[in-house]
Lab assay of single mutants.
Amino acid sequence: KYLVLALYDYQEKSPREVTMKKGDILTLLNSTNKDWWKVEVNGRQGFVPAAYVKYL
């Protein structure tokens, strides 16, 4: 498993997404889509914009 760092705040806009705050450390679950990565944060799984996170 990889960890990624939230570069920006992101507010979920659909039930498939998750909210994150700048500085959050997220567990990367799937990065096959170049635009949306599946992550786990605070016990929830969902998608965030790939451009908003970077590998640690």
Rank of each mutant, 00 (worst) to 15 (best):
K1G: 12
K1R: 14
K1T: 14
K1S: 11
K1E: 10
K1P: 15
Y2K: 12
Y2W: 14
Y2P: 14
Y2Q: 15
L3G: 04
L3H: 11
L3N: 07
V4R: 02
V4K: 01
L5S: 06
L5W: 07
L5M: 14
L5C: 09
L5R: 09
A6I: 03
A6H: 02
A6F: 03
A6K: 02
L7Y: 04
L7T: 06
L7H: 03
Y8Q: 14
Y8E: 12
D9V: 02
D9R: 02
D9Y: 04
D9W: 03
Y10H: 05
Y10S: 01
Y10L: 01
Y10K: 01
Y10F: 08
Y10N: 01
K13Q: 15
S14R: 09
S14T: 14
P15W: 09
P15R: 09
P15K: 10
R16H: 15
R16E: 14
R16N: 15
E17T: 09
E17W: 04
E17S: 07
V18P: 01
V18S: 02
V18R: 02
V18M: 11
M20Y: 02
M20H: 01
M20W: 02
K21L: 08
K21M: 11
K21R: 13
K22H: 06
K22Q: 11
K22R: 12
K22L: 05
G23S: 04
D24T: 07
D24P: 00
D24H: 05
I25L: 09
I25T: 07
L26N: 01
L26W: 02
L26K: 00
T27Q: 12
T27P: 13
L28A: 03
L28R: 01
L28F: 04
L28T: 02
L29E: 03
L29Y: 05
L29A: 03
L29C: 07
N30A: 10
N30I: 08
N30E: 14
S31V: 10
S31G: 11
T32N: 14
T32L: 10
T32C: 14
N33E: 10
K34T: 11
K34A: 13
K34Y: 08
D35P: 03
D35C: 13
W36Q: 03
W36V: 03
W36D: 01
W36T: 02
W36A: 02
W37L: 08
W37A: 05
W37K: 02
W37S: 04
W37N: 01
K38S: 08
K38Q: 14
K38F: 15
V39S: 00
V39Y: 00
V39A: 01
E40F: 07
E40A: 09
E40Y: 07
V41W: 07
V41M: 12
V41K: 14
V41F: 15
V41Y: 11
V41H: 14
N42Y: 09
N42D: 13
N42H: 12
N42P: 05
G43K: 06
G43N: 08
R44H: 08
R44G: 04
R44A: 07
R44V: 09
R44W: 03
Q45Y: 08
Q45H: 09
Q45G: 07
Q45D: 07
G46I: 03
G46D: 01
G46V: 04
G46P: 00
G46F: 05
F47W: 15
F47V: 07
F47P: 00
F47S: 03
F47Q: 03
V48Y: 00
V48R: 00
V48M: 01
P49F: 03
P49D: 01
P49K: 04
P49I: 03
P49A: 02
A50F: 02
A50Y: 03
A50C: 06
A50P: 04
A50K: 07
A50E: 03
A51G: 12
Y52G: 07
Y52A: 12
Y52V: 06
V53L: 15
V53F: 05
V53H: 00
K54H: 11
K54E: 11
K54V: 15
Y55K: 13
Y55L: 15
Y55V: 15
L56G: 05
L56N: 06
